[in-house]
Nucleic acid binder design. Structure first.
Length: 464
RNA sequence: GGCGGCGUGGCCGAGUGGUUUAGGCAAGGGCCUGCAAAGCCCUGUACCCGGGUUCGAUUCCCGGCGCCGCCUCCA
């Protein structure tokens, strides 16, 4: 079974299902602008986790929220003179479009903060009733001092956190670390009625309400980007603790994307949006780039690296094409014979290597390394005229890639238009006549039209 | 200042106390090919510096240097 590193306990352990279901809650986007590659990595990492668990036969319930009311959305609405809902809707549409481009499966549930305000109001009332929260002129705050073990995810105690120079006291707070559960209504801002005064929810409140509502108490895993570890997840946990409700059993954080060793972020201006990425690279290249690294390590992402990974993806497609051609010949004349048995054994060994790597804290880098070994072996078998063995081993490798969301396809199956096909026929004829000059001229013309020429026993093959 | 992490061969990026290599891409040589492409084979004295532990450390411990993240919104 899969063992995963848990940020809270700082060790790897197995995911624990609740009533037979693995509930995954992953903090999704605040919809105020175009998603960038960093957001994409988060989505890919948890998509890979979800796909792999399902591949392993687990029942998974994947929930990921959309924060559609927030300071940044309001700021932008003000700056652009447009309704805040319009900003959110537009940004959310861009998000799902990017997710679809990346082949990220849609989570089973996509709760929106604005749909759960009522629940958040109840939660705040509950916390006030328990004396864990207090009212201030500008809203309601949670008193961090009332929470046992505050700082668990940050791995620092209250004193150490207080010592942080960058924590400043704000208007109504009793302690600098206290955080807003509810922000009092201001003119021109969205607000909802509440017994403790109209206003809007603080960021940390929604995830508590939505995760518990959709997954129940003691759900399996709570995930997000590494930068959400503190204060966001710490503060979510603080609320659950103050409520006395069992919360996430496992905390998982995906590593940040870097450029030149620095975090990709808007303020540094070093970000690549997912829309740009899709335009200039094969989205599968990004998935492969993510898979080649440890999910919780920082990862360098540049157009050059995407291009490089793209060439590796092409190699996978190339194999898919070779296997498609080999399949008819692979029908074993002796089913169950020694040849087939050894091919199956090799394929099983490959899948076992893949699985044991994945089970080891989602070691996708090790898993991918194993699969590329399988790719090379399959190509070797094809060169050695063993189509059955190649199909068994190579097919299994590509299936495993597909299990983590990296689909391959026969690059030769796409039929070029008639003009290009005519050139290919002309080239084959010239080659048959040993007229190399004419053959090379035809090839040059084909390439000028954007197709690549490869020779095969059956003549010219074309791919993009 | 506190906490956490990183420093691996041209680049990205795993991993491990020592027997056989992560893997990808790039580079060089070879096989195949009319040539090329694709594929395969081979090659490059990799583990920041200084101590320590050890029969043996890239891998553990201590110190140093450099870099990064979080401590404020952030995937």
């Amino acid at each position: 079974m899969l063992r995963l590193y848990d940020t809270a306990s700082e060790r790897a352990h197995e995911l624990v299902p609740s009533s037979g279901v693995l509930g995954l809650y992953v903090c999704g986007p605040t919809v105020y602008g175009p998603p960038h590659v960093g957001h994409g990595r988060l989505a890919l990492v948890f998509d890979v986790l979800r796909r792999y668990l399902e591949h392993r036969g687990e029942t998974v319930r994947h929930v990921s929220n959309v924060t559609d009311v927030d300071d940044k959305i309001i700021d932008r609405s003000r700056a652009e003179g447009r309704p805040w809902q319009a900003i959110a809707e537009e940004a959310e549409a861009a998000w799902w479009s990017a997710m679809s481009d990346l082949s990220v499966l849609r989570p089973h549930e996509v709760p929106h903060a604005t749909s759960y305000v009522e629940g958040m109001v109840e939660l705040v009332e509950d916390l006030l009733g328990r004396g864990a929260a207090y009212r201030a002129p500008d809203g309601v705050y949670l008193s961090v001092a009332a929470v046992d073990g505050y700082g668990l995810l940050a791995h620092q105690d209250l004193e150490a956190l207080r010592a942080g120079e960058r924590v400043h006291a704000e208007a109504g707070k009793r302690s600098p670390l206290d955080f807003a559960l509810w922000k009092a209504a201001k003119a021109g801002e969205p607000s909802w009625p509440a017994p403790f005064g109209a206003g809007r929810p603080g960021w940390h409140t929604e995830c508590v309400v939505m995760s518990l509502a959709l997954l129940g108490e003691a759900f399996s895993l709570h995930g997000g980007g590494y930068d959400l570890r503190f204060p966001h997840h710490e503060n979510e946990r603080a609320q659950a603790v103050a409520l006395g409700r069992p919360f996430a059993r496992h905390w998982v954080h995906s590593g940040l994307v870097e450029v030149g060793g620095q975090k990709m972020s808007k303020s540094l201006g070093n970000y690549l949006t997912l829309a740009d990425l899709v335009e200039r690279a094969d989205p599968r290249a990004y998935r492969l780039l993510v898979l080649r690294a440890k999910y919780r390590s920082p990862l360098e992402v540049t157009p050059e690296l995407l291009g490089e990974a793209g060439r590796a993806v092409e190699r996978l497609d190339e194999l898919a094409g070779r296997l498609a051609t080999a399949r008819p010949a692979a029908a074993d004349p002796d089913p169950g014979g020694p040849g087939e048995r050894s091919a199956t054994t090799a394929a099983d060994a490959l899948a076992a290597r893949f699985q044991s790597a994945m089970d080891d804290d989602l070691d996708t880098a090790g898993a991918v390394a194993a699969l590329f070994d399988g790719v090379r072996e399959a190509n070797r078998l094809l060169d050695a005229a063993d189509p059955a063995g190649a199909v068994a081993v190579g097919g299994r490798a590509l299936e495993c890639f597909s299990a983590v969301g990296l689909a391959t396809s026969d690059p030769f199956s796409q039929a070029p238009d008639e003009a290009v096909q005519a050139l290919a026929r002309r080239r084959d004829a010239a080659r048959a006549a040993r007229d190399w000059a004419a053959a090379d001229a035809a090839r040059a013309e084909i390439e000028a039209l954007g197709w690549r020429v490869e020779d095969s026993p059956s003549g010219t093959r074309l791919r993009r």
